[in-house]
Design a protein around this nucleic acid. Structure first.
Length: 114
DNA sequence: AGCCTGACTCGGA
DNA sequence: CTCCGAGCCAGGC
C-alpha cells in the first residue's frame, strides 16, 4: 500500500458524509498534515480502495480538479449531484454550504431547496 | 545524490 | 475575472 500517510487521508475522506464535500487542504489539515494538499491529491491519484468516497474531495475553489488524463470529472460531478450537491455556473460548489468540517456539529448552512 | 512532477493553495498584480 | 510565483514534500527516474 502506498503508506500510512495515505491511509491517514483516506481515513478522513471516509468520514465525509453523503451530500458534503471537503477540499484537499481541509483533508490534509484534518489528517494532521497541514499544507499537504498536494499529497492528498497524489494519494487519491494512487487510490485503489473503492470504499473511499474520493468524489467528495474537491479543490479550495469549489470546483472539481482535472486529472489531465481523460477526466473523470463528469463522474465525480454526477455522483455529487446524486447526493444533493448543487453546482453553479462553471461547475462551482458553494463551500459555505457544503464544506464538511470533522469535529463540528454543523459546518454548513442548510442546502438550498429551490 | 539531484532534478522534475503533481486530483493543491494562497496572496499579489 | 485572469495570470504568476512561492510553499510544500513524497515518488519516480
Amino acid at each position: 500500500m502506498a503508506s500510512a500517510e495515505y491511509e491517514a487521508y483516506y481515513r478522513i475522506i471516509r468520514l465525509i458524509p453523503k451530500g458534503r464535500v471537503m477540499t484537499y487542504g481541509d483533508v490534509a489539515i484534518a489528517a494532521d498534515r497541514p499544507r499537504q494538499a498536494r499529497r492528498v491529491g497524489y494519494a487519491l491519484h494512487a487510490l485503489r480502495q473503492p470504499r473511499v468516497p474520493w468524489w467528495r474531495v474537491i479543490n479550495a475553489q469549489g470546483t472539481i480538479s482535472a486529472r489531465g488524463r481523460g477526466d473523470h470529472g463528469d463522474e465525480q460531478r454526477f455522483r455529487l449531484e446524486a447526493e444533493g450537491v448543487e453546482f453553479g455556473l462553471g461547475g462551482v460548489v458553494d463551500l459555505d454550504v457544503y464544506r464538511f468540517r470533522p469535529g463540528r456539529k454543523k459546518g454548513a448552512r442548510r442546502p438550498p431547496s429551490t
